[in-house]
Structures are given as C-alpha cells and as structure tokens.
Amino acid sequence: MILTITLIALLVTMAFALIRAIKGPTVYDRILASNALGTKTVLMIAVLGFVVGDPELYIDIAIMYVLIGFIGTVAVLKISEFGNLGQPQSHTETEDP
C-alpha cells in the first residue's frame, strides 16, 4: 500500500523534473533536472523491486544506475565547463545569448 503511494509520488516527481528540464532556462537547470531524474530513476527501480517481488535483482540494477549516472553527470559538467573532456585546449565554448 505505502509502496504504491511512494511509486506514484516518484512518478509525479519525475514529471516535475521533466517540466524543469523542458523549461530550462539555463543549461545548468537542465543538467540539474536530468540528474534529479536519475536519482528518482534509481529510487524507482529499488521500490519497483519490492512491488514486483524480486528486490535482489532490482537493487543490483539500482546500484549500477547510480554509478553510471554519476559518471554521466560529471562528464556532461566537464564538457559544459571546459568545453572538452580535460585535454589542454583553447576555450571554445559558445557564448550564451
């Protein structure tokens, strides 16, 4: 019962994060929304494991997702900050309007 409520709340928060990702307005808002959505995905998979009745498998997936999401977000931030993945290079980031 409470798991169902948690699941629905997770879906609602995912929708909220999606709205923030669409509205922006800055690049960082979108990255933040994408990252928050990643956290919710992980929680959702963990909760789903208990709803479906196979928590062992789903928790493994959730752990994998946290690690992948972390690497993805940091890579995106590195690009948005330095314009590349860390190689010495002149700053080529396009200017915000």
Partner: peptide
C-alpha cells in the same frame, strides 16, 4: 545542448521501462 539533455532523460525513462 538542451536536446542532448532531453535525450539523456529519454534514455533514463526508457531504461526504467526496459527494467
């Protein structure tokens, strides 16, 4: 840039569906 982020979000949602 926003489109790339939307694709990332799309993949996350699709991954939950695959699970």
């Amino acid at each position: 840039f926003a489109v790339a982020m939307m694709f990332g979000i799309y993949s996350l949602l699709a991954a939950v569906m695959f699970v």
